[in-house]
């Protein structure tokens, strides 16, 4: 299945690899790494102080949000569920939950 998917991606982008294996910029976005995770964060928006640390610390860069409105969220297509945001949140406003597969 994964292999077939990759073949489709290859065809769709008409990659010319006549001149070696050169990749298009940012093309990794086609790889939805959310399938990696066994846990998923929940941003509770109860005690958030708008410190931005969850954005800084996210290894994938999937967390986004506004300091002013103190609303943060994440892109669940890519979040690998490492739990760093929950561990490092200074006010424990992020919690991890097990993903049922």
């Amino acid at each position: 299945m994964l292999l077939r998917l990759r073949t489709i991606i290859l065809k769709e982008r008409k990659l010319d690899f006549k001149l070696g294996i050169i990749a298009r910029p940012g093309s990794a976005l086609s790889n939805k790494t959310g399938s990696f995770r066994s846990e998923i964060p929940v941003f509770k928006h109860e005690k958030c102080t708008g410190c931005d640390l969850c954005i800084y610390y996210c290894p994938e860069g999937v967390v986004f949000g506004d300091k002013k409105t103190k609303t943060y969220n994440f892109d669940d297509d890519y979040c690998k569920g490492c739990g760093i945001c929950a561990e490092e949140c200074p006010v424990d406003d992020i919690e991890m939950f097990l993903v049922e597969k």
Binding site: L3, F17, I22, P25
Partner: peptide, 19 residues
Amino acid sequence: PFSFGTVGEPSVYLETRFR
């Protein structure tokens, strides 16, 4: 910007060497 010298998995390596 392009990325040069990427990883050639078994699914593509043979073809790159053929080229």
